[in-house]
Design a binder for these strands. Structure first.
Length: 245
RNA sequence: GCUCUAUAGCGC
């Protein structure tokens, strides 16, 4: 079964869903019937192809075949709906899954928070974050990073900066993704001084941006006449291996 | 305990 599942997963990653379905038929006929992992791989493939109607149908098919969806199944489907920008359906599935004995976990919430963030629905994302705490389902750094992305997207950069405090006060450690998200948003919004400050923290933490990013930023600082900031950055870059100007 | 699900940018 493990070998079969690995094969099916490979076929689905290669987007060869129909071949995967054929193999499932063979499995049914063999001593080695498909299990929930098998079906979940196919579901992932359908979601990646954004075939959400088919994905929804497929969940019914697996149940009809005596294989009940588990929490991974729902997570795949919710994430697919979010990525297909169908947040309303994603929320409905999220509400319903508990009735089928599958309780949302940190990945379910993270997918939703990420989808809401991409859709700039930061207030809704924040409600979910609060709901997680109430349900003792604790956000991890990936959850926080998704929310951080939302704050950045809607231009709430001060709140985004302040959110780092929230993360650490919840015993999580901002990582390279966190800093990079904030850093790029500050650059995009031409808040270069703040960007340099973040850059400094990144270097301290060993999350230095790439050389090209450094050069671009120095270039922009020169253009807007912030020569002192540019110099600060050059000094910073000199301390980082693999960065040359 | 081996197979399935979530975040930035970059490269291929």
């Amino acid at each position: 079964i493990i070998i079969f599942n690995a094969l099916i997963d490979m076929l689905c990653t290669l987007e060869r869903i129909d071949d995967a379905l054929k193999m499932i038929e063979e499995m049914k006929a063999s001593k080695c019937p498909p299990d929930v992992v098998t079906y979940n791989s196919v579901l992932t493939g359908l979601c990646r192809l954004k075939q959400m109607a088919e994905a929804s149908e497929f969940i019914k098919i697996m149940s009809a075949n005596g294989c009940n969806p588990n929490v991974v199944t729902y997570n795949i489907f919710v994430d697919g709906l979010c990525k297909a920008e169908n947040l309303d359906d994603a929320m409905v599935v999220f509400q319903d899954m508990a009735q089928n004995g599958c309780h949302p976990d940190v990945k379910t919430y993270t997918s939703l928070i990420d989808g809401l963030s991409d859709a700039r629905r930061v207030d809704d994302a924040k409600s979910l974050l609060q709901e997680m705490a109430q349900r003792s389902c604790y956000p991890n750094i990936i959850t926080y990073n998704s929310f951080l992305k939302g704050l950045c997207k809607v231009g709430k950069l001060d709140e985004a900066e302040g959110f780092f405090e929230v993360i650490t006060s919840n015993k999580c450690h901002p990582d390279a993704v966190s800093y990079n998200t904030l850093f790029l948003a500050l650059c995009e919004n031409e808040r270069y001084s703040a960007a340099v400050d973040v850059c400094e923290r990144m270097v301290e933490k060993g999350f230095a941006p790439r050389a090209l990013t450094f050069r671009d930023l120095v270039d922009k600082l020169c253009k807007v006449g912030k020569l002192d900031e540019a110099q600060k950055l050059l000094a910073l870059g000199a301390r980082v291996p693999n960065v040359e100007f």
